Amino acid sequence: MASPLVISTHFSSIPHKTRHRSLSLLCSSVSTAIFMNPISKPNKNDIFSLKKPSKELLISRKFIACTSIGDTETKDSSLVGEDSAAFDLEEQKISSWIYFTVILGVVLFVLDVVWIDNSTGYGKAFIEAVSELSDSHEVVMLILILIFAGVHSGMASFRDAAEKLIGERAYRVLFAGISLPLAVSMVVYFINHRYEGLQLWQVQNVPGVHQLLWLANFISFFFLYPSTFNLLEVAAVDKPKIHLWETGIMRITRHPQMVGQVIWCLAHTIWIGNSVAVAASVGLIAHHLFGVWNGDRRLARRYGEDFETVKARTSIVPFAAILDGRQKLPKDYYREFIRLPYLTITAVTLGAYFAHPLMQGASFNLHW
Score class of each variant (00 low, 15 high):
Val6Asn: 14
Ser12Gln: 15
Arg19Pro: 05
Arg21His: 13
Arg21Glu: 15
Arg21Gln: 14
Leu26Tyr: 08
Val30Pro: 06
Met36Gln: 15
Leu57Asp: 05
Lys62His: 12
Lys62Phe: 12
Phe63Arg: 08
Ala65Gly: 10
Ala65His: 13
Glu73Arg: 08
Glu73Ile: 01
Glu73Ser: 10
Glu82Asp: 09
Glu82Cys: 07
Asp83His: 07
Glu91Asp: 06
Ile94Phe: 09
Val102Gln: 03
Leu111Gly: 06
Val113Phe: 10
Thr120Ile: 04
Thr120Tyr: 12
Lys124Glu: 06
Ala129Cys: 04
Ser131Cys: 11
Val139Gln: 01
Gly150Met: 04
Gly154Arg: 04
Gly167Arg: 08
Ala170His: 11
Phe175Ala: 02
Ser179Lys: 09
Phe190Ile: 04
Leu198Arg: 12
Asn205Leu: 00
Asn205Gln: 13
Gly208Met: 10
Phe218Asp: 05
Phe223Trp: 06
Tyr225Asp: 05
Thr228Val: 07
Thr228Ile: 06
Glu233Cys: 10
Thr247Trp: 06
Ile249Phe: 15
Arg254Asn: 00
Trp264Asp: 04
Ala267Thr: 06
Ser275Tyr: 00
Ala277Ile: 02
Val278Gln: 07
Ile285Arg: 00
Ile285Val: 03
Asn294Gln: 07
Asp296Val: 00
Asp306Val: 02
Phe307Arg: 07
Ile316Trp: 02
Pro318Lys: 01
Glu336Arg: 09
Ile338Leu: 15
Arg339Gly: 09
Leu340Phe: 12
Gln360Ser: 13
